[in-house]
Design a protein around this nucleic acid. Sequence first.
DNA 1: ACCATGATGAATATTTTC
DNA 2: GAAAATATTCATCATGGT
Length: 692
Amino acid sequence: MLRSFSWPILQVKKMVDNNSGGEADNFDWDTEDDLEIDNYAISAPSGLSTPCGEAVLGSAEAGSSGNSPNSKIIDHFVGMGFSREMVAKVVEEKGEENSDLILEALLEYSASTLPSSSNSKLIDHFVGMGFSEEMVVKVVQENGEGNTDSILETLLTYSALETTASVQQNPDSGNCSSDYEGSLLNDFSDFDSFSESEEIMSPSSEEGRKLLHLTKMGYSEAEASVAMERCGLCYLIHFCNIFLLMVGRMSKFHLDSIKDPRLFNCCIENVPDPTIEELTDFICAAQIAKAADALFPLEDKPFSNGSSHKKRRNWGYDLLLRKKKLKLEKRFDEDDDAVHLPNPMIGFGVPNEPDQITNRVLPEAALGPPYFYYENVALAPKGVWTTISRFLYDVEPEFVDSKFFCAAARKRGYVHNLPIDNRFPLLPFPPRTIHEAFPLTRKWWPSWDTRTKLNCLQTCIASARLTDKIRKALEDSDGEPPLGIQKFVLEQCRKWNLVWVGRNKVAPLEPDEVEMLLGFPRNHTRGGGISRTDRYKSLGNSFQIDTVAYHFSVLKDKFPGGINLLSLFSGIGGAEVALHQLGIPLKNVVAVEIAEVNRNILRSWWEQTNQRGTLTDIQDVQELNGDRLEQLIKNFGGFDLVVGGSPCNNLTGSNRYHRDGLEGKDSALFFDFCRILDLVKCIMNGTKSMII
DNA sequence: ACCATGATGAATATTTTC
DNA sequence: GAAAATATTCATCATGGT
């Protein structure tokens, strides 16, 4: 189930492109299913009540007509709540003519089997998990006792429905716990009326029945989400996003992007209409997800008096949700697509090292124009790079440690569609060891400090107190300090990238030393009103020029006349500097950067290096919408390269507080990179086809 | 309001040991 | 090989000084 719908538009697009792939076979192109989707999509937002049910009912009947003769009658009874196997068996025994006889037999059969023998153990099992017996009996009856997974799923669905139904009833939705109070697991006062309404509408298939749940759930979802388009695809994406949000694998793909007509049209052409089966997956996912939304914040709240009771009653349900989540994550982890870091971390190759790869096959959807280049920290939480890769057309990330280019480590992942043959490095090579980079430190460097490379240059430096502490610790002993002291000092030196600047004296790097290590021109970030703290911060967030330039070098032959660059999250202009140092002329550069100090730094560099092109400042990626892009692209005929390193602060291990993955407040801007890149592709391809 | 400073671990990967 | 030890990490928050 997961594989067939996990990835939104981009991935689906790829699956269409590579139709030979096995995954594409998961899609059912049945037109009758299309009908159901259309009916749902049009009717769901317009009203909650009958139109949805009628539409579903009608199409479900149409769907069953194509099957074997007695499938319709089977569907009928399945819709009443009997298991499919049982119905089939009874129909076979009694013939399909006399429906009363069938019903009688079914009732008798289920009465004899259910409460008593074989599956009472099964029922006990689920009741033990915290579900009400009434619900378990019903669900086991519906699903048959063979498929416990399916039972569990349905139970969760019902519970989630129950939860959200009562949440909706309560107009004061500000307090989750109070909302939830009225909808505890064992209190299924609404459950009967719910199932009753199902029977009234009586859709004649399992799918149709679940679709009703979708309309019920989907309606409130749609209402809550003002931005939603009245279109089935949008619902799909929305549910998909909610689901993935719950699974914890991605942030919501900003729905705003879906609103853009260019992107939307581009996508909808390539997205097959889903089968009902997939749709029901979305339903369950959305229901579970919504319930999870209602429940998980509860945990964070301190429990006041009397609430331990509430917590205990939630416990079984909560556990189930977690189990469900774990199960899904496990399936994720078992996936062969799990990204693993190369050791040594040299990507497709680095200068002066063996094992160069000069050939790769890119997915068709990934091919330019434009070229794109995305960067972020390699050591992100699990699953993040899988998501990034999937969203960027399934291009395999290239993980490279900049310690192969300079004297400091910098483990980064790069997803790009650049050629990888005939790369060349910037010359002269920068210093590659600490001693080469800082010759003066050699005099004071103790033999027991065996470092030759610095660790990653970050945004903060060690405190004076720490270096003082180290000095004092070393002064206590003359000559070789005790091993314990050595270990402590070395640990701190590695942690804070300290260098030896005197006898027993270590110090953090100066900002201009960081500039040099990262490959920027001296004083690149100096002056113009920027504080020392901000210099460290801007530099710590930047590219390593030599590393990036090595990847960009393949563009030099391709664009002798210069390139048009869209630089997202441009920071202090790492991409611009790298291209400039490669001798690739910059024609039109659109740089999007939120921090004013960084925009000033880039502008200042632009002027000081006498650039002949034009530099356009944009403050926020959010304001770079389709209209703006269309205008820019029309002005100078498209971008040759789109570069961006989106915020890493919710991904990096340095963040003690909000390492939230791609869902994080800042790191979620990755999805704006996707949005903008996709818009650029759509607009440029559209422009091209108009010219042709 | 800006700036500098010190205190604040966990997640994950890699290496070593048994 | 499995388990244990070791190593690494584009940061945030509260606070005080100016």
